[in-house]
């Protein structure tokens, strides 16, 4: 499917301060296809509700943000090994159940295509277009040997649990997926 064009953003016509938008925070801690999908469906729908949406990617969730050409990353042999076996990108995510060495996600994506469900890749791009903030977690990037260059463009600066909590304290919806 093709991505819908974004509606033009209206220029503010007065000097009145913009009303404070409600906040939604999602913690994407899983690199499973069946978790990444609902995270991005909720993120884009939250943005459609006019909410200020932040998705914080940590642990296996960072796989969603990896560049297709990231290659082998890290300094330590364990980090390098991890980057080989956890290639990441929305394309390579597996299912938490019935993965069958990649056959499961292939069937799931074929079904999604047939039923015209937007893919994780499409939803990720749509989320960025809609102004959803995508935050990689600094500590897990360091742990896994991922640098900013191993992740896609257009992300917010890497942040930590402190920043995540500060966002969640103000949010009316916070979910850990």
């Amino acid at each position: 499917m093709t991505m819908p064009d974004l509606a033009p953003v209206e220029e503010p016509t007065s000097t009145e301060p913009e009303p404070e938008r409600e906040k939604m925070v999602l913690i994407a801690a899983s690199g499973d296809l069946d978790k990444a999908w609902p995270v991005l469906i909720l993120a884009t729908t939250g943005a459609a509700y006019g909410m200020d949406v932040t998705v914080f990617f940590t642990f296996w969730g960072l796989a969603i943000l990896k560049r297709p050409d990231a290659g082998i990353s890290g300094d330590d042999w364990r980090q390098k090994l991890l980057s080989v076996f956890n290639r990441g990108t929305p394309e390579n995510l597996g299912l938490s159940k019935l993965n069958f060495a990649g056959l499961g996600p292939k069937m799931m994506k074929d079904l999604a295509d047939k039923h015209r469900v937007a893919s994780v890749q499409e939803l990720l791009e749509l989320a960025q277009q809609m102004g959803v903030k995508l935050w990689p977690c600094q500590m897990t990037m360091d742990l896994m040997g991922l640098s900013r260059d191993d992740l896609i463009d257009g992300l917010a600066d890497p942040a930590g649990a402190g920043a995540a909590i500060a966002e969640m304290k103000q949010a009316s919806i916070s979910l850990f997926v």
Binding site: M1, P4, D5, L6, A7, I41, T44, T45, A47, A48, Y49, G50, H115, R116, V117, A118, L126, M130
Partner: peptide, 14 residues
């Protein structure tokens, strides 16, 4: 033909 959440996304943009 589009599935959730695309109808709401498109509606919100319009």
């Amino acid at each position: 033909g589009l599935q959730c959440p695309m109808p709401i996304i498109k509606l919100s943009q319009a």
